[in-house]
Simulated scan of single mutants.
Amino acid sequence: MHTSPSVRKVFEGVATRHEMHRMFNRHRGNPIMAEGDAQQLFAGEWFEIAESKHDYMLDILPPLWMRGDMFAMHEFMTGNITSVFFSLAIDGRRRWFHGYCDLSDRLSPERMKAAIIERESRPVRAMTRDERLEHIWSSTHDDYRGYAGERWPHVMRGRRTVLVYAGQSGTVLKLLDDLTEAEVAAKLPVQFRHLPETVAA
C-alpha cells in the first residue's frame, strides 16, 4: 500500500477552490478507505491556498479551535484527522495553507507549521521526485488514475496507478511510483517541468 513521509507537500502552486476540493478527496477509491483505517493516507498532507479560500473555510462552521495563525475544522476527515488552516508569514509575505493533522498528537499542528515554513523558505524553487509524483496524483482526473486491482500481481495491488501515453502502444496503465523521468515531465504542467530536483529534507 501507499506510504508517505509524515509531513509532505502534495500540490505545487496555489490551489484554486476546485483544486482544493479535489485534494480533499484525493484518496477516494483507495482500498484502505473501505477498510475504515485511512488516517495514514491523510495525516501530514499539506498544500497552499489563497487567502479567500482560507477565509471561506473559516466562515463555514465554527472552528474546533483557533491559535493565533491557525485554526482547526470541527468536522474530522477520519479518526483523529482534521483540516488545519494556516496563515503564515514567510519571507516577509503572508501565505495560506491547508494541512491534515492528527489531533491525537497535540504537537502535530505546530510540527506541520514548522515544516511548511522550512519547505517554503528555501531560496531556490524546486521539487523533489516525491513532490512531483504527488502533484501528478493530485491534478490527474479520476478517470485517468486509480489503484492496482486483481489483474495486477498480488504485491502491487492497492498501489496508485495512472494512465500514460506509451507511443505506438497508445495509453497504458502504470504504477505512479514507476513513472520514468520523461513520463513525469510529460504529466507535469510546463511551468514545473524544469524546476530543479531537491533531496527531501
Rank of each mutant, 00 (worst) to 15 (best):
H2P: 13
H2L: 09
P5W: 01
S6V: 01
V7Q: 05
K9S: 05
E12W: 06
V14N: 02
V14T: 12
T16N: 05
T16A: 05
H18Y: 07
H18A: 07
M20N: 09
R22A: 08
R26A: 15
G29K: 10
G29V: 09
G29Y: 13
P31I: 03
D37W: 00
D37H: 06
L41P: 04
A43Q: 01
A43K: 00
W46I: 04
E51I: 10
L58K: 14
I60W: 10
M66S: 10
R67P: 04
R67S: 12
D69W: 06
D69R: 10
E75V: 10
E75Q: 10
F76E: 00
F76C: 00
M77C: 05
M77S: 02
I81H: 01
F85Q: 14
S87M: 13
L88R: 11
R95M: 15
W96T: 12
H98M: 15
G99N: 01
G99M: 00
C101F: 04
D102W: 00
S104R: 10
P109W: 00
M112I: 11
R119Q: 14
P123F: 11
R129G: 03
R129M: 05
R129Y: 03
S138W: 01
S138C: 11
H141Q: 05
H141R: 06
R145L: 08
G146H: 03
G149M: 08
E150H: 01
E150D: 08
E150T: 03
W152Q: 08
M156H: 14
R159S: 12
L163E: 14
Y165K: 12
A166H: 02
G170W: 06
K174Y: 12
L176E: 11
D178F: 14
D178S: 15
L179E: 10
V184Q: 09
P189I: 14
V190A: 13
Q191V: 03
A201K: 13
